[in-house]
Write a protein that binds this DNA or RNA. Structure first.
Lengths: 373, 373
DNA sequence: TTGTAAGCGTTATCAG
DNA sequence: CTGATAACGCTTACAA
């Protein structure tokens, strides 16, 4: 972290070793036209005679001018053409989770069509509430994705800056346009499905309840102190059917993590559950793996329900008897698209466009009636 | 964090959607100081009396000023604090490949420490050679990652703009700082290892040779027309030991793709290879899976060597007899870090810092002598 | 320490 | 269709 070395103290900011780039004004001068005409020649927005245009382009080529500087353009236009995407994990972790990737894909698709690019920002909320890179970055709008941490401060800052904020599956936030999923209701449906199969001993494996990456049984206090909207809603959904279902918190969403938590779960002193509701497919795969390792058959001895409907089950189950996970399929990509659309709409001055999506229970072969005892 | 409850005039009239954001000048005026002082109060870079600072901050809070506008700041400073990362795939595909993710992670780590954020840009090279979003985005430097397409035009444009370019594993490009990997030499070593084991019938499964996502046997013409530096180099490495090894091109880097190509490979009329050199671990997993499906044991009937050394072998092999892939382990994360460092160094005016890394052959349990026949 | 002034490179406006 | 001119909001050398 060295100090940027503008040490030579020149009058202009960047008079370092780099050759000064010609400006549009210089091109105009060389072409013998006014700056405004040169500008029009490049932006294409406005009437320019064919002759003037070619002269400008020629002069540009001559001088090695690469087109208008985006920085100046964004100042002048008040727009940078960039949408910030905020995630609250290290990028490597975030990218490892198909949910984020698919959502991002939806965002990227819509953003790309609109000619805007994506600025990746790790959620910048230190304990101090610092909002660093997020506010120093030239973004026109921000999409908050997978928020396990308290984001209100960030939203507050962005609001003050008049930067539209879209929050995917966040708690109700003042000033952020929500893109919601029926997490609670969907989880309730999954639980009801298990209940109808006859299950009475149901456990839950939750996604992280906050940004601290803790792992283990979820105490009442921990649950009450939880912040992560999605995890809590999904948990509440199950609790609507099984009010006292024990819950285990995973420290992340990965197969390995699911395996660890699953191992603990099946090894616990408590009576073994006959069904486990897992808050993500990736975790569910790990839990299933742990079940096998513990000598349990799925679904004969224990049923497992996932969440997400990620399309990679084939590879993950390839050498197991399982063909398809029972899970709640959610429309990630569409969620991402909706978020991007909402963001773009807002920065064009259109009214907020909240969105809400439903998950569908897809019944695979990881659920069955509980074993006769 | 809350609005100061100055009872009299604090409430800003909420002027509909177009509430003009206050400027630093306005804040300075309200605080009774000069703009420059207000600027220093925010940037922290320069001497400001405690009293002035608090007055400025108070005025800012009063007016709902959220800090200096990054757009204006970047124009003035000639820097936006953003590094562009260019990938030549759809983001969803790119993120699905651990190689990209890990590289990106290395980039993000270094960039984050330097206070710069990452702008994700899909490689914009239409057949027309358009370079759209890449040049309109306010980036200080660009890192090209995983380039299967011809990137010269993009680099040319960026050069003209004085934007430093770092290319990871690209062919030698005028004006781009290279971050290289010993693809050819490493592949040669892997091939030599197989030769020493006694293999004579060796096939290659390649990564895409260009951006067209073709799949199938690699003809001499196709090979000659190939663009993707990495794939070609790795292929050449094997050819250094097995000059006429048949090659099959995969249409991407995924387990599923590996399985498809592997199935074709093992079903082909040609004599079955006793060893397969696969250009990525992800593909290799698929090839191994295909081998099992074809009734072949790995490594007894067929040896498989991968490339990359991605750290997820455990999950992928979890229900197979295989514990570890024989592969060439490359330092992705360090590559990403080096790329980011090079980019940052350049935009600070430092001389170019090319980098080159080595891959290590890690011998797992997917390779063995060929079956006695 | 603080104030003054001069841009940074564009684009929008409006008159010719 | 073209040209002069005024911002866009901020930073920073330099003077006070």
């Amino acid at each position: 972290m060295d100090e940027p070395a503008t040490a030579n103290g020149a009058a202009r900011p960047d008079t370092g070793s780099r050759a000064a780039r010609p400006t549009l004004a210089a091109v105009a001068r060389a072409a013998g036209v006014a700056p405004s005409t040169a500008s029009l020649a490049f932006s294409g927005a406005g009437p320019v005679s064919e002759e003037a245009r070619t002269r400008v382009l020629a002069a540009a080529a001559e001088l090695g001018y690469g087109g208008p500087d985006p920085r100046a353009r964004s100042l002048r236009r008040g727009r940078s053409g960039v949408i910030g995407v905020v995630m609250d994990e290290r990028l490597s972790d975030a990218f490892r989770d198909p949910v984020n990737v698919l959502t991002l894909d939806g965002i990227a698709e819509v953003a790309g069509e609109a000619g805007t690019s994506l600025l990746l920002v790790r959620s910048p909320l230190d304990d101090a509430g610092l909002v660093g890179p997020l506010v120093d970055a030239p973004v026109d709008a921000v999409v908050l994705i997978g928020c396990n941490v308290r984001i209100d401060p960030a939203v507050a800052v962005l609001r003050r800056r008049n930067i539209p904020v879209v929050a995917i599956e966040a708690d109700e936030i003042e000033g952020a346009v929500p893109v919601q999923l029926d997490n609670r209701e969907a989880s309730r449906r999954a639980a009801a499905f298990l209940r109808d199969l006859g299950h009475t001993a149901v456990a839950v494996v939750t996604l992280p309840l906050d940004g601290t990456h803790q792992r283990g049984p979820v105490s009442a206090e921990r649950e009450a102190a939880g912040i992560a909207h999605t995890s809590l809603e999904r948990l509440r959904g199950v609790r609507g059917v099984y009010p006292s279902a024990p819950a285990w918190e995973a420290a992340g969403s990965s197969v390995e993590e699911g395996r660890i938590v699953g191992a603990a779960l099946f090894a616990a002193d408590a009576p073994r559950p006959t069904a486990v509701v897992v808050q993500s497919d990736v975790l569910a795969v790990g839990v299933i793996s742990a079940a096998f390792d513990a000598g349990l058959r799925v679904p004969e001895d224990v049923s497992v329900v996932g969440f997400d409907g990620i399309p990679v089950d084939d590879s993950l189950f390839h050498r197991t008897p399982i063909r398809q996970l029972t899970t709640l399929v959610q429309p990630f990509v569409q969620k991402g698209q909706a978020a991007a659309r909402a963001a773009i709409a807002m920065l064009e001055g259109a009214p907020a466009q909240p969105a809400a999506f439903r998950s569908e229970l897809r019944i695979g072969d990881t659920t069955a009636p509980p074993p006769a005892r």
